[in-house]
Nucleic acid binder design. Structure first.
Lengths: 248, 248
DNA sequence: TCCATTTGTCTATTTATCTAGACAACTCGA
DNA sequence: TCGAGTTGTCTAGATAAATAGACAAATGGA
């Protein structure tokens, strides 16, 4: 159940934004049943104890985000959950591939640290075993919905500032650019799928039994020198991986 | 470095709040050197491109939180990092023990799930091995600073709604109350200390080499019936555990 | 077709937030 | 002691957010 109260007046956060945030959460929690029909504006304004216009401002925000759609005379319903389409071809960058599909993309650093490269990682990056590597654990969200959880390895000497740059720019591509890497390719990708483990369920807000696609990718300079080894778990019910043009 | 820009006008979040959030982050990032002297209000208003009064509202918020202190004629400085004092005596509740010290306390649910009780847990909770138990992984923050990371086990049948209640109320004590437990005691506590592992470093924002105090506690009804088994890692450089009255 | 229900639009008013400027009060070093 | 630099306080006005009420326009079922 959604709590009746819980919006703070005069907290520096506008009421419509607090309401929009709550409704967005309720939507991704699947609170509005199978038909996705939301309560009317009057009902919502009663529930949050605000004016109808304030609720309308919140709904307008969610329409803008593409999360809901309103039809005069009928009501407001949740748009069928999007499946974000990720290209995994050779040249396309993560961010570019999503251009036009999304409004707000966000990468969060969950963990970062330097460790001695285990054999499996050293091999992929073309480093000596034990060479220091930077491990970055990320969660990426789009429109507030978690899409993937990745563990990334970099040469710690060359990319010491990577974690900091990612934290600031919110994007690996931009972090690369800040560190002097203008272009890179996906040299190899391996795909598999499995049940999400407990940690992934926590990070990606998945239900027990949810499936993830696991992509192991080696990014490299256009000349082929390894830059980054990444193991990414995509939430399978929210993401389609794509080779070539979109189908439709 | 703190970015110059990055505050959105008309985003539904008041400018003073956005600025307060940025400054709070800058403070915990240790941006204001050893003396902790912050730039003057004029400098800050120039940096964020807002009126001085708007900056003052942000600073007033941080003063209210106890993060900084302002002295007329001198300037604004970061208050020396607090050590939060946690009582671990029999009756005191987490929240109560911190009363007066803090302004904003926040518990985040990192993971939750039901599993068959392993022998070690079943024993402590007085349940049969394999009985379903709810596992709740939490991070608690005060004034935006992460203090502890805990793994908690409950009887899943009795406390099925625990995760949801904690998420909503942001407090275990309040969640208990919602579920009909008005009072409880700490029946047993064991303490040790060790280096933080990688996951804890990520969750609590600790540097490599940081130390945590690990408390294993069994909470029970006043009559002694087990309610909750918790393993909590406290960031040792931010927390003092206390038995009896505060020293000083 | 008619009617209840729902979203869309308009006007008006109040409250919160932000800006602008002036000056007082205080601290510290020259 | 003086003055530069700082925070504290006040007034006034502009802009954004929220409330209130009324009615139009579309939908879907009776």
């Amino acid at each position: 159940m959604m709590p009746k109260d819980g919006i703070d007046r005069g907290s520096g956060v506008a009421l419509w934004r607090q309401i929009a945030d709550r409704l967005r959460q309720a939507i991704v929690d699947g609170e509005f049943g199978t038909d996705g029909l939301m309560p009317g504006e009057m009902a919502l304004s009663a529930r949050f104890a605000v004016n109808r216009h304030t609720v309308r401002a919140a709904l307008a925000g969610l329409v803008e985000e593409g999360l809901i759609e309103t039809v005069q005379g009928r009501g407001t319903r949740v748009r069928p959950p999007k499946r974000y389409s990720f290209p995994i071809s050779k040249r396309t960058r993560f961010s570019e591939g999503l251009a036009g599909q999304i409004r707000e993309r966000q990468v969060t650093v969950i963990e970062d640290g330097v460790l001695a490269a285990p054999q499996t990682v050293a091999e992929k990056l073309g480093l000596a075993e034990g060479h220091p590597v930077l491990r970055l654990v990320l969660v990426s969200r789009v429109d507030g919905v978690a899409l993937s959880n990745s563990t990334n390895y970099f040469d710690a000497q060359r990319f010491a500032a990577m974690a900091e740059r990612v934290r600031e720019t919110g994007s690996i591509t931009r972090a690369y650019r800040d560190l002097g890497v203008e272009d890179y390719i996906r040299r190899a990708t391996e795909l598999t799928a499995r049940l999400a483990d407990e940690r992934e369920r926590g990070l990606l807000d998945l239900k027990p039994g949810a499936v993830v696609m696991e992509a192991r990718a080696l990014n490299a300079t256009p000349e082929g020198a390894p830059l980054q080894y990444a193991v990414t778990a995509f939430a399978a019910d929210r993401v389609t991986l794509r080779l070539g043009d979109p189908i439709e």
